[in-house]
Design a protein around this nucleic acid. Sequence first.
DNA 1: TCAATAGTACCTACCGGTAGGTATAGCAGA
DNA 2: TCTGCTATACCTACCGGTAGGTACTATTGA
Lengths: 211, 211
Amino acid sequence: MDTPITTALPEQAVPDQDEHARTRLLNAAVRVFDRKGYAGASVREIAEMAGVTKPALYYHFGSKEGLLLAILQQAEQQVTDAMERATARAGSARDRILALCEDVYGLFEQNVPVARVAHAVFLGPPDGAPPFDVTVFEARFRQAIERIAADGLTSGELRAVSVHDVALAVMGILEGCNERQLHPAFEPVGADGVRRLINLLFDGVMHAPRA
Amino acid sequence: MDTPITTALPEQAVPDQDEHARTRLLNAAVRVFDRKGYAGASVREIAEMAGVTKPALYYHFGSKEGLLLAILQQAEQQVTDAMERATARAGSARDRILALCEDVYGLFEQNVPVARVAHAVFLGPPDGAPPFDVTVFEARFRQAIERIAADGLTSGELRAVSVHDVALAVMGILEGCNERQLHPAFEPVGADGVRRLINLLFDGVMHAPRA
DNA sequence: TCAATAGTACCTACCGGTAGGTATAGCAGA
DNA sequence: TCTGCTATACCTACCGGTAGGTACTATTGA
């Protein structure tokens, strides 16, 4: 059973020897991958940061790649679970889409380094890290929004728009918010900001009533 | 004077010996950085792909880092120029924002590998590549949209909304479109799609008139 | 009860290879 | 003469990964 990946250690912490080596390796790897990317991270540095030797790393994960995959699979599972919970909710289409976006944003927020590692692998150079199929996750998320938007169309809540376009616009806004959160130079918009921006999309920007 | 970076060479092309070595190096570097990222790319491979020796690469660019910076500075200049042209336009706020987004999207579209390299460096791991300040570019773009939106507020075209929020929403949607364009697994939305999604933001999603 | 064995979790020392970068002599062309 | 390269050799540092070994615990069978 996987133990939770935490990033509670301060930057220069001495590894806690009571903590299982496997967990320490996962945590150290998240930090090094986060700072240097997969290609720039060395197993030597990860092992040192975890306070174990390289063969111990290979014992637990088999390879550098195995280490990254362990991290990504956990992250993917957490996001998938959050999406399933959020799409099972009742309420207006608007509220459900808002809740879904807040949940996914909150997931990123509570584990920024892991989210950054995953983000960099998903959207980064194809040969820069082991292949990891981002389209499954993207399709799941997009389809969740499309289903909710289709409900909103059926109920008359939404005007006659393409649910695919709604999903792309929502996902774009959320992606912009996530990037501001993940990038250290930007001020995060926060959950309130996510809500405001998605509401802006729902309500529109124009002053005059639409033709 | 910098020569244009082109990526017109087919994947397995023999380097054209009539072309200046410097240009060949820039083009080769874009391709290798695009596939492997900065950290995963080797100067050996870049030089071979360009059909020159490693010392020739160092003769022109001084270092691996110098090579990347040459690419990024050109890309940044092109985007900045496009933004200046687009913001100097007359017209409604809506049309000006639409035109700006289309221009920036079109710039990405006409040089996807360079855009991907820049995108990966700007948003990727802080120590994974030489530092390159993305906030200057982001601020320029955001402020351009904010200024246009402020004009729209003054003229009564836009309702009473935060120009900052409008800029963030627009940028988010455009970022989503750019990512779909840059990532090989996704179908690009195209310029029409950009227009549709930004218009969706302008017009809103809801059916009923706003309260 | 105790020896033998298996399994787990690590260690030290080492492997072959490659990274960015440098030096140098030399050639070709303007 | 100078620029723009080539070819070759080399440097230091580092890369992901492995072989052989140790320590410890739990289990089994005599």
